[in-house]
């Protein structure tokens, strides 16, 4: 069981799009992939073809066994659990993360958690096999947040694998180009890859789908496949 937590370092970094696209990229290897929406504002289901009218999710159930009714499967075979409308206070995100271990049907299965930006990383119960990706955009605010995060990580003596992943990179912008070069050489924990800004990601969502299916030869698709491959190598490092 491989657990990947993805969280924006601030709101609007594009975390949910990454979760949906990454889930489908990982699924190409025919391994079980679960995507769990922990973000009340994420709407992960919309990226994976869930009907807009659908309101229910795990936050509408008193316990995990009943919340499992809300697992859906997209056309690629990704099983996902929407957040819902928060009509029941019986479950919180920690118990959902813990309970997901009951679904662990294979050592090769991947669990992707779409985490809300406002919940701090230290509120998650992480172990040394977990990978935590904090999504950043190439702007000065993310630069500031990343250095603040580094300070808190040093103090917490984190045991999990923590990385900053750059999303929506626009190579035509001088500031973004400057920042990315700076980060790649001087920011500790920066992932050695980034996701380019690509209209395909937005268009795919409008078609209730992901880049892999809408534009298989797009830059975005290449980026998500690279990300999936890199995560496989990171996770296999844990297995050694």
């Amino acid at each position: 069981m491989k657990r990947i937590f993805l969280k924006g370092i601030k709101g609007g970094t594009g975390t949910t799009s990454i979760v949906a696209n990454l889930a489908c990229a990982l699924r190409k290897s025919n391994v079980p992939v679960y995507a769990i929406d922990l973000d009340p504002k994420g709407d992960l289901g919309l990226h994976l073809g869930l009907a807009w009218e659908h309101q229910l999710g795990w936050s509408d159930y008193p316990n995990f066994a009943s919340a499992c009714e809300q697992f859906h499967q997209d056309n690629d075979g990704v099983k996902f659990l929407p957040y819902g409308s928060h009509s029941n206070l019986g479950l919180d995100f920690s118990s959902i993360i813990e309970s997901c271990q009951q679904l662990n049907d294979s050592d090769d299965s991947w669990f992707l958690f779409d985490c809300p930006a406002h919940v701090d990383v230290h509120r998650y119960s992480l172990n040394e096999d977990d990978i935590f990706l904090e999504i950043i955009n190439c702007d000065a605010i993310c630069h500031s947040f990343a250095f603040k995060r580094l300070n808190t990580l040093k103090q917490a003596e984190s045991s999990w694998q923590h990385y900053f992943l750059t999303n929506k990179y626009n190579s035509a912008s001088e500031l973004e180009s400057d920042l990315l070069q700076l980060w790649q050489t001087e920011l500790p924990l920066i992932a050695p890859l980034y996701i380019n800004k690509d209209e395909v990601i937005k268009e795919a969502t409008a078609f209730r789908n992901v880049a892999i299916n809408c534009a298989p030869y797009s830059v975005a698709n290449d980026d998500f496949e690279t990300l999936a491959g890199w995560l496989v190598s990171r996770a296999s490092q844990n297995d050694q």
Binding site: A140, H143, S144, L175, D178, L179, Q181, L182, T185, E186
Partner: peptide, 18 residues
Amino acid sequence: EIVDVEKNRKTIEKYPLL
């Protein structure tokens, strides 16, 4: 690893927040 230290220094100096 080849790092353009001079370019990084100029980038930091260019933006007051950085």
